[in-house]
Structures are given as C-alpha cells and as structure tokens.
Design a protein around this nucleic acid. Structure first.
Length: 496
RNA sequence: GGCGCAUUGGUGCAGCGGUCAGCACGCAGCCCUCUCAAGGCUGAGACACGAGUUCGAUUCUCGUAUGCGCUACCA
C-alpha cells in the first residue's frame, strides 16, 4: 500500500511551496487509496514553535487535506535515531569521530563551505581521510566510555556510485567520491536531519517520498543511510521549486506575506480556488482543462506529469492589484462566480459575520432575497472580502460613498437635486417593486423629463451603493428594495 | 570551487522529428452595454545561443550561457 508523508518543520507559517508539496502528497495517496501521514520535524528546538504547528494544521484543514493516523513528532523519535547511529557503529558501517567540533558562524556557512571545498580540492584532500575512520571498534568504545565527546559519521565507500530513480527527474547518479562521510550524530548526541528523516521514513513505512527538489542531491546521502540500515529504498519524486518573480527563492523575509498560506485565507480566497491554482504550479493534465475540483485533481494526478523546471510565482510588490499571482486572483473570482450557491454560502456567511453584517434572517425569512442578492453581486467579485467591502451597501446602511463616483455621477449635474427626489416619489408607489417595474418607472420618468437615462441610472447607482460600478441598476433597485432605494435617492441630494 | 537540475511569449502550462508552435492568466482593441465585470471576437508577444545527428529539428546528442539547488556536528 502506498504510504506518503508530509514533513514540515514548524518554524513559522505554512509556506505555499510546502502547501503544494502537501497537496501533491495528498493527491497521490488518495488517488492510489494509500495513506497520507503527517510528521512534524520539530528537532530544531530553537526555531520550532507550537504556534507554527497549529498554523500548519490549520492550513492543511483549510486546503481540505486530511491526514491519516496520528501526527508524528520527530523530536520524540530522537532516541531511535541515536540508537540507529550507534548500531551502525557497532556494525562497522559508521564510526566515531573524536575530532573536536569546528565552530562556524551561521552567517557565513555558505562561504565557508565554498572555501573549504576549494582548499580541499587544491590540497587533493579526499573525503575518506578522517583519522578516526579506521580506529578499531574496541578503542573507539573505550574512548567513548571514558567520556570523550564524539560525532558519528557514516562510512562511505571509497569507490563506486550511488544510484536511484526519481519519478520526476529520472535516473540519478553520483560518485561516492563526492560524498563525504556525513555526520549522523552530533557530538552533543543530537541526530542530524539526514539520519532522522531516513529512520522515521523507514519506521513509518513510507513507500513514496514526494518533496521539494532542494533535496534531490542529498537523496544520495539518504540512500546510503537506507543501505547501511538494511532498509528498502522508497520511490522518490522531487518537485520543482516555486520561485519569486526575480527567480530567487521565495522567502518571508524578502517577500512577506504572499508566501504564507494563511494570507490567502485571510484575504478572502476560496480554498478550492487556491488549491486549484497551487496544483497547476509544476503540474498539468496535459490537456486544456484548468478548473478542477479536488476529486478531479485526485483522479487526474500523476507523478509523471510533474514538470521539471521551477515555476515562478508571479506577483508585484508595487501593485496592490497584483499583490499575488494574477492567475490565482482570476481563479478565485472564477470560483466565486461559479460555485454552487450552497457551497459559497458558508464562506460568505463567515465574511459577513466577521464584519458584523450578518443577519440570521438571511437563512430564514430573507433567504430568497439573500441568495438572489449574492448571486447578483458575486459576478464581479474577486475575493470573499468583497462581499463585505464593495457589497456592504446591500447589507447595511452605513456604507461609504466613493468620492470619485459622487463627483462623476452626482455632482456634475445640478438638476439631479430635483430629479432624484422626483424619481424617488415615482418609485415609492410602484407595485410590485422589481427590476422590471423599476426599469419601466425610470424609463417613463426619462420620457417625461427628457433627460438621458444614463444620467439617472448612474446617479442612482452611486446614490444606492456609493459606487460608480456595479450590477445592472434595475437589479440593484430590486436588491436594495423600495424603502431603502427611495431613502437613498432622497439622501443623495445632500451630496450634490 | 565541485556536483546536480533546469531553459517554449511577461507568468503558468501543451508540444514528445514534419504543427500557421496550442491553451490559460495578464496586456491592447472591438462587440455587447446604464457603469464595471462577465461573455464573444480580434491582436501583440516565445522555442537562450552554437555545433552536430537527420531529408527535416522546439523536439535527439554535445558544448556554451544563464538561472536554481545541494555541498554544514542547519533543516
């Protein structure tokens, strides 16, 4: 049976790249009737937080990705990891390195790595030159027993090549000569990442490791650990990375909240829309279909169709209208306008509740009106927030007047001072008060007064909604209702 | 520095030896129209470069360039 896992570090918010990794793992598991497990890699005590773990769980839930079994907290397994390392020492597959720990400042690691590599190369230093590599086990045991600190390193063979088949990137090969005797256990006894992942993946019986491409080359090291442990290698599938517009790594420090999944929830994304968008970053069906439900994504998903090139997440810090990828925004609007009302309702409700615009009647006596109104306004909304922002005038009387709209549609024509109240009076007696009858009334009024219909229509729009744009005005009359329409037409005079 | 991976319009993807190089988002124009959307139509816009292989390369091979990743007693 297929068993996959999503293994985030709980350091900060859930990154959209991680979210996509989770999605792909989930899709793969669900497609094959397998298990989708969750492992929190909280071994970095300094940086891991409970709040972060919570936000990861919330994020998964928001995306609709449920996990199987209990959450595994990696820190709980470190005794296992340590035992595994020591067992490898006993078996001669790893050795204790008594070299004192080299201190390196975090800030310069990258540079130090490059410098050391250059130095080693020029000195012809090979990766098997550690003086403790061939220390007899007995002496090693004695020194350890005497309390001398040591790190544990894997013994990598002198000759040969490491191979594995990646489901996305194909056959991968690397010479052992390029791989150092990697540290499994730090001198303070803490297991290192590569060891921990492998031991946990073995224990969790993971069959497919689907993760970011940044792990591709390190997979050879992990393959060595699998071999030393005598465990079967899982199938690997590495995913292309999601990059910022300047093709750099997407990071919170540099790019801010666009990379955080919670941002999308908070800014009014429909989960299905964002999920759909994420699925299309680095994967496609091969045909022209882009809008897909979770069921459809599951049915059509395959590792073979994953793209190898990194994807650029296209947004613009300077343009608020493109605060995130325009296609994601488009897709969200697409979902908002096409989702069955019943599916949209809970999301609209919570938005209105949050903004104190919700009335219980919307689900009882005013249900019909509410549904018609939502269906009317959602046609031009992009996020769920719009229901309480641009849509406020439909649900409350204390909406704001857009100054530009007032200028353009009301103030430019002084005659509106008389026209609007007169129109209000006409509308007051119309029965029933619908889009059709309000239109007939307004058209008749136009005939009578000889003004242009557009003048009254646009003025009415601003009077009733505070805006210059919106749905067909006669539908707006009906949605706002007679009483409020009449009042707003009369109140608008004060603004002219 | 070494190793690895990648390279189709601004972005996301199709293409898998012969296509007018396709779709979506975005952009521009037109239609529709009471505004703005939606919708319809039209348009601008790409195979990184150089060698090979081949009757023929976007597609296969090699090289170059560029980008990204890894390289640590970080994860």
């Amino acid at each position: 049976m297929v068993r996959v896992r999503f293994a985030p570090s709980p350091t900060g918010y859930l990154h959209i790249g991680s979210a996509r990794t989770a999605l792909f793992n989930w899709l793969y598991a669900r497609k094959l009737g397998g298990r989708f497990l969750l492992r929190i890699e909280d071994t970095d005590q300094q940086r891991s937080t409970e709040a972060s773990t919570r936000s990861i769980l919330e994020g998964l839930e928001w995306l609709g990705l449920d996990y199987d079994g209990e959450i595994v907290f990696q820190s709980a397994n470190s005794p296992d990891h340590r035992a595994a390392a020591l067992r490898l020492v006993e078996e001669g597959k790893a050795y204790r390195d008594f070299t004192p720990k080299e201190e390196r400042s975090d800030a310069n690691v990258k540079r130090e790595i490059v410098e050391r590599a250059r130095r080693d190369a020029s000195e012809g230093q090979d990766h098997r030159s550690n003086p403790y590599r061939d220390l007899p086990l007995e002496e090693s045991n004695n020194r350890a027993a005497a309390g001398e600190p040591f790190a544990v390193r894997l013994k990598v063979a002198h000759e040969g090549r490491s191979h594995f088949e990646d489901a996305v990137y194909g056959a991968q090969e690397r010479s052992y000569a390029e791989i150092e005797d990697l540290v499994l256990l730090r001198s303070d006894g803490h297991p290192l990442y590569n060891l921990s992942v492998v031991v946990d993946d073995v224990n969790m019986q993971i069959t497919h490791v689907i993760r970011g491409q940044d792990h591709l080359t390190n997979t050879h090291k992990q393959a060595l650990i699998y071999a030393a442990l005598g465990a079967r290698l899982p199938q690997f599938a590495h995913l292309p990375l999601i990059l910022a517009p300047n093709k750099a790594k997407l990071s919170k420090r540099k790019h801010g909240e666009v990379v955080s999944l919670t941002t999308y929830r908070d800014r009014g994304f429909v989960p299905a829309a964002f999920r759909n968008f994420l699925a299309l970053l680095g994967w496609s069906t091969g045909d022209e279909q882009e809008i897909m439900s979770l069921e459809e994504l599951t049915r059509r998903f395959s590792l073979e169709a994953i793209v190898r090139a990194n994807a650029v997440f296209n947004f613009s810090e300077s343009d608020p209208r493109q605060w995130t990828d325009p296609k994601a925004l488009w897709m969200n609007a697409e979902y908002i306008r096409t989702l069955p009302f019943a599916e949209l309702l809970p999301m609209v409700r919570s938005e209105l509740v949050a903004q104190r615009l919700w009335k219980q009647e919307y689900e009882t006596t005013e249900r019909e009106w509410f549904e018609r109104t939502i269906n009317l306004v959602r046609q031009r909304f992009h996020t769920l927030r719009d229901f309480s922002q641009q849509g406020r005038a439909y649900f409350a009387d204390d909406f704001s007047m857009d100054e530009a709209a007032v200028q353009k549609n009301l103030r430019r024509e002084p005659r509106l001072k008389e026209l609007l109240p007169a129109l209000a009076t006409k509308l007051e007696t119309v029965e029933p008060f619908t889009a059709e009858t309000s239109e007939a009334t307004l058209r008749a009024f136009v005939e009578e007064t000889g003004v242009k219909s557009g003048l009254l229509i646009n003025a009415s729009r601003t009077a009733l909604t505070g805006q210059a744009v919106g749905p067909s005005m006669f539908e707006v009359f009906e949605a706002v209702g007679r009483e409020r329409s009449v009042k707003r037409l009369r109140d608008a005079v004060a603004l002219i």
